[in-house]
Amino acid sequence: MQTGQVGWADSSVRAAGRRNRFFRHASPYFLIFPSIALMAAIILVPLVRGIIMSFNSVNIIKQGEMHFVGLQNYAQMISDPVFHIALRNTAIWTLGVVSLQYLLGLVVALLLNEPIPLRGLFRGLVLVPWVVPSVVAALDWRWIYAPDYGILNYVLSSIGVISDPLQWLSDRHLAMLAVIIVGVWKSTPFMAVVLLAGLQSIPKELYDAAEVDGASMLQRFWYITFPNLRYLSMIVTMLAIIWTFNDFDIAYVMTKGGPSNATHLLSTYAYLSAFTYSDLGYAAAISVVMLVILLVFAIFYSRMLTKGNELA
């Protein structure tokens, strides 16, 4: 407060003091208020409305007019064969992508942690799939998988692995594998970078001591690297599982769930139910089931996490 008038100084200092105290208590709430307002409007309220919708039949044409149907949407899932397929596919997709992504990411991180020439260049190149937007990745791979002029069939047939071109995305038995490959390709860089950061935070003295004691490379990995990475690995795989489970873009752009539902995930099935079959209530119910699965998983997993952390 700069009033410049001597007579005012005393009271204005006191007023400023009061104001400061007020601001000290109130200001964090002012600061987070815009975030809270946005998240209430776009996340919390829609979340609650989404859950309510799952107990209603919703008319998309009449601006989302609802009428209550109880558990009917949930009952419909039990007898819906496509839902069962999508549930199973989502499990295969999530486990497939995350486990391969972790293994590959770990290998890449270990390699990048070695003292080699051009390490910075390699690290930059490894990030490329992460940088490519997922829609572009899906389109790019559709071109690679193309049965007639696609490069993958050409490479496989020229090295003699296959004799006839494979219908990667229209063969029921191959489509899921093809989509999983894209998921792994897209997500491995992130995993590798995080694990690399973890590797670099392990004190070097541990390795030196182990080497003096005559530990082999495998022993060093098993007794030093792996235990030190465990906590970080659990956090990052939990994130990866949530992201992969919720992923929509790759499966939707590559196959729209086809051929004959072979790659339908819960996310793509819920989306099509909502916006192609205009059954918003049923779609909401499917996605509420997704949320419940994730919540149960997260609670179970974070229990394991705290327990594992106490042991270590």
């Binding site: 979340l47 949530i242 919720n246 819920a270 909502a274 909401a284």
Partner: peptide, 16 residues
């Protein structure tokens, strides 16, 4: 909030 399936959010957000 990172965990909420986007497909669950998009239905009510679209209606909103």
């Amino acid at each position: 909030s990172q965990m909420f399936p986007p497909v669950l959010m998009i239905i009510p957000i679209f209606v909103l």
